[in-house]
Design a protein around this nucleic acid. Structure first.
Lengths: 138, 138
DNA sequence: AATAATTTGCAACATTATTGCAATTTATGT
DNA sequence: ACATAAATTGCAATAATGTTGCAAATTATT
């Protein structure tokens, strides 16, 4: 049994060609992907609707999380603990490159705690940093 | 001349009923709004397209900024220095309530600086905090 | 009041996302 | 390996969201 298939099972997801390929895609290129990104890649292989549903089930079963983005297009990225634990790791830094437009998760950077106004309760935090990524920085 | 009209002029925008009403809306309820929010409110008064174009021109002329959101719908909020200065204030905290789903800008909270990996250049930062807002906290 | 330039509404179109249902595929127990 | 139950897929239809072109109306200016 392959690694990808094990991850799917650990997340209570049946192993299907669509899921295997899409999960592999996320694991190989480690930046956030939109449905459109996946559609251009798999248009001929899978139905658009199947891709939507794959993203939804990955989201529901904790394989992916949504990445905040001001472009108005939903983007998704792998959660950190791929199947090995059911850790909540929503609180991390996303970096969006202004040149190549790619978004990646900087899982290792902690978001500094912050003093909120009275009566506000913080549950999750997402820091989106924009700038130039290492690949685009000459 | 009213305040709202002055703000529009300071941003090189002609004063029209649509713009006045939409700007007032943003100023009164100080949380982020999507096109859909405005459409439900002004459906009978203005054309859908006009609302889209109003948002675009407000964005281009520095009255509004886009709010990062993981819902996949573009949201907009007032920039802090409404017309009084051309200050860049993109770098601030947004708070999204998990109960009422509203997003507001916490302009007064600074985003703590952060040590990025090598070769990454930071230009803007947006911190999105999710939790319970003051209104929804009993 | 006349003019030039911008904005609006309408229609058409393009893109993005959702739903129902029959056919297929997967996992499970035998 | 095979039959079965349950979940997934593809297709078609529909909904929601966003864009473009153009004539008519509105705004700012002289």
């Amino acid at each position: 049994m392959q690694k990808v298939e094990a991850i799917l099972k650990e997340h209570d997801l049946r192993v299907t060609p669509t899921r295997v390929k899409i999960l592999k895609t996320f694991m190989l290129q480690h930046n956030a992907l939109s449905h459109a990104d996946l559609e251009t890649q798999f248009k001929s292989e899978f139905d658009r609707v199947t891709i939507y549903r794959t993203l939804t089930s990955f989201l529901e079963n904790g394989l992916l999380h949504r990445v905040p983005d001001d472009s108005g297009v939903a983007k998704y990225a792998l959660c950190k603990h791929d199947g090995t634990a059911h850790n909540h790791d929503d609180d991390h830094v996303h970096f969006k490159c202004k040149k190549c437009e790619k978004i990646e998760c900087l899982h290792d950077l902690e978001i500094p705690r912050l003093h909120l106004p009275k009566k506000y309760i913080m549950e999750d935090a997402n820091l989106l940093i924009e700038g130039i990524c290492a690949d685009c920085n000459p």
